[in-house]
Amino acid sequence: MMPADVSMQTAAARPGLRARLPDVPVTVLLSMVWMVLMILVALLAHWLKPYTITEMDLMARLQPPVLMGGSWAHPLGTDQLGRDVLARLIVSIRVSLSLAVSATILGVLFGGIMGLLAAHFRGFVEQLVLILIDVQAALPFIILALSALAFFGNSFLLLVFLLAFYGWERHARVVRGLALAAYGQGYMRAVEQLGAGPGRLYLRHMVPNMGATLVVSATLAFPEVILAGAGLSFLGLGIQPPDTDLGNMVGYGRTYLQTAPWVLLCPAAVIVLTTLAISMLGDWMRDQLDPGQRA
């Protein structure tokens, strides 16, 4: 009875989603367009950028963008060293997005495994995971990140791991709850009694059932990861020059707030639009998944 129940849900969702596509709100469509654009820019950064990010044109420092009376040689103007803002922006989008995507995936994986472990073993292991969740919730991310970056030095890999820790406890809670609920449903016991090992049980049956919820949970966490990464770089603790990311551009552009606000405003606008777009997509996806939980 229960397995039929579950498969009916997914079967109903698939044609439903396609049929509803014309009714997708304009804001969500715009968000999708923006995200596709960002992903394309990130993927094609090497071919799109008009200059390299370190190429300096000392004769053309702090040039304004085209709209503020600049020239087409530097459509978004140049920074204090005469580096092209558009080129740096394109590369920054690539760096920031890949950082956030890998951190989010890692966070979901880690949180998911912890949640499954807690639900599978119960007892002592579950208490341990719950305490780890408590510890993570009690240690504000920024302080954790500050200490780790100051002590272990700065590297892209460490940043990815740090940002992955940001929010893993939420995914762990979600997965633990879903797994506990799944045990209560007949299909898990049926598969188990048919002789499936834990690997098959979890990977083939339980995780696919959680998939949609996990994707939404990751999408909702994604903008926060972007903001956290940008915040760290803004403080000068994230991506280090000569490399660049969106937060780092805002952080260094801050010095020229008065004379060349575009150096700061361009990356700031990209951060805002991207987080806005993903938040809207995430909210919309959550509503599609569970109309009862509209927020």
Partner: peptide
């Protein structure tokens, strides 16, 4: 509310 969430504090502050 959604915009307020999407604009990071440091951007809002600097603007």
């Amino acid at each position: 509310a959604v915009s307020g969430f999407a604009v990071p504090g440091f951007v809002f502050g600097l603007v």
